[in-house]
Simulated scan of single mutants.
Amino acid sequence: MPEALGHVYLLYLLVGARLLGFTLAFPPLALPGLPVLWRLGVAMGLSLMVAPLLPPNQTWPTGAWGWIWWWMVELVVGLALGFVAGIAFQILRTAGYIMGLQMGFGMAELLTLGGAQDTMLAQFLFLLGTVLLFSTDAYQLVIEALVRSYQLLPLGGAVMKGGTAWLVTQLVGGLLSASLQLAAPVLAVTVLIDASLGLMVRMVPQINVFMLGFPLKIGASLLLLGLLSTALGTVIGKLLLEISHDMTLLVRGLS
């Protein structure tokens, strides 16, 4: 009886390793204000629900070092899943950073003693994506993809392949292009404003372009974002729906 209980305890630790790695790498669950113990509690709570759903023909490691190796493998798999799932949020953050720099919000970093790494707009889009993730029940698709990963990729069965590395490279490579597409309307407006101010300086050299340009670009860009708020929410929703698809592709590549 004690051996059976010990086996069950190790099983839950093994299942929780993949979930723990995911909670550590998934940006909405890895916010600086969230304690690590909270993430550990989420991982172990999910493991209690996932463990009974494991296939009956699951094989188990032998010996202490076998369990340790499998635990490390599952932790790496969870980190990889969290990284791939977080690409959508990195797209939002990068798009907000690009828009913020063009609008003039990047100047706030020079005046911040703490050395903020993101503009205000980058933080806004990231938090907006987090709110939409939990308010639109898109998080259920993420949990479903996690549960499905145990069926597609058994415990300890991860194998690194060349196709998997190429998949991750494609996802990361598409990050910048997707960010530029998301920030394209604001970039177009700021370029037009800069060009117009350049022509005005030619005609009236006494105009202070910097004093006029900053509020003009910020106001026009914020107005544009307000007008495109519905379309922006639709685009963010599509990005969130792609999370579970990307996770499934990664799991299939590792199996």
Rank of each mutant, 00 (worst) to 15 (best):
M1H: 10
Y9V: 13
V15D: 08
V15E: 12
R18D: 10
T23A: 13
P27H: 05
V42A: 08
M44D: 04
M44V: 15
G45N: 04
L46G: 15
M49V: 15
V50Y: 09
A51N: 11
T62I: 12
G63H: 03
A64S: 06
A64H: 05
G66M: 07
G66H: 04
I68T: 08
I68C: 03
W69S: 15
W71F: 13
V77L: 11
L79S: 10
L79K: 08
L81G: 08
V84R: 06
I87T: 11
A88R: 07
A88H: 02
F89C: 09
Q90P: 00
I91A: 04
I91D: 01
R93H: 09
R93A: 15
I98W: 00
G100P: 06
L101T: 01
G106V: 03
M107H: 07
M107C: 01
E109S: 10
L111E: 14
L113N: 04
G114I: 11
G114Y: 02
G115L: 09
A116Q: 13
Q117L: 10
Q117I: 11
D118M: 11
L121P: 00
L121K: 01
L121H: 01
L127R: 12
L127C: 02
G129W: 04
V131M: 09
L133H: 03
S135M: 09
D137C: 03
D137H: 10
A138N: 12
Q140V: 10
Q140S: 06
L141G: 15
V142I: 11
E144D: 14
V147C: 04
R148W: 03
R148Q: 14
Y150P: 03
Y150C: 07
P154S: 11
P154F: 08
P154W: 08
A158C: 10
M160A: 15
T164A: 12
A165C: 11
G173H: 12
L175I: 11
S177T: 14
A178Q: 15
S179E: 07
Q181A: 14
Q181P: 00
L182Y: 02
P185W: 01
T190I: 11
V191R: 01
G198E: 02
M200T: 13
M203L: 13
V204L: 14
N208W: 07
M211R: 10
F214N: 03
P215A: 12
A220W: 05
S221E: 00
L223A: 15
L225E: 08
S229P: 00
S229Q: 14
S229Y: 12
A231F: 06
L232N: 05
G233D: 06
T234V: 10
G237K: 04
K238L: 09
L241P: 02
E242D: 14
I243T: 08
H245V: 15
D246V: 02
T248Y: 01
